[in-house]
Amino acid sequence: MRRRWVKVLAITVTILAVLFTAADRIALRYANHEAAQLAKDKYSFTNGSTEWRSRASRS
């Protein structure tokens, strides 16, 4: 009986670790997308370009 609880606990911890890792990676992907969008909005980056124009220089 004691071994059964250890197995259940080990499986539960493993599942929680996998879910936490997946949620963390999804959040990181979303954050990177948001950061790229903010940089694009602020500095007018174009795809693959290292040139940028600030809002002050566009006026």
Rank of each mutant, 00 (worst) to 15 (best):
A17G: 02
H33M: 09
L19S: 09
A39M: 14
A31C: 07
L38T: 15
S49N: 12
G48L: 03
A36E: 15
N47E: 12
Y30D: 04
K40C: 10
G48D: 04
S59I: 06
V18N: 07
Q37N: 09
S59C: 03
F20L: 15
R29Y: 01
V18D: 05
T50I: 11
S44Y: 08
S44M: 07
R53P: 00
S59A: 04
A22C: 10
G48I: 01
Q37I: 10
T14M: 06
H33R: 14
I11E: 04
W52D: 01
K7G: 01
T46P: 00
A56C: 04
A27T: 02
R2F: 13
I15T: 09
A36K: 11
Y43E: 08
S57A: 05
L9Q: 12
R2C: 11
K42M: 11
Y30V: 15
T21W: 08
K7S: 07
L9A: 10
A27Y: 08
A10C: 07
A35E: 08
S59R: 11
R3C: 02
I11C: 07
R58G: 08
K42P: 00
V13I: 15
S49K: 06
T50R: 11
G48A: 03
K40D: 08
V6R: 09
S49Q: 09
V6Y: 02
V18K: 05
I15P: 00
A10W: 05
R25E: 01
I26A: 09
K42Q: 14
D24H: 02
K7A: 04
L19V: 08
A10T: 06
I11S: 04
V18P: 00
R55S: 14
H33T: 08
V8G: 00
T12D: 04
I15V: 10
A27V: 03
K7N: 03
L19W: 05
A36F: 10
L28R: 15
S57P: 00
Q37D: 14
T12Q: 04
S44V: 03
L19K: 03
A39Y: 10
A39W: 08
Y30E: 06
D24K: 01
Y43R: 05
R53G: 02
A22D: 12
G48E: 01
S54F: 00
W5F: 13
T46D: 12
A27P: 03
A22G: 09
D41R: 04
L19E: 12
A10R: 13
S59T: 11
S54W: 00
T21V: 03
S57T: 04
T50M: 11
T14G: 10
N47S: 13
R55E: 13
I26T: 12
W52C: 05
L28W: 02
R4L: 12
I15H: 00
E34H: 13
R29W: 01
S57R: 02
I15Y: 02
L9P: 00
R53I: 13
S54P: 01
S44I: 00
T14R: 08
S57G: 00
V18Y: 04
V13N: 06
D24Q: 07
R4Q: 14
V18L: 14
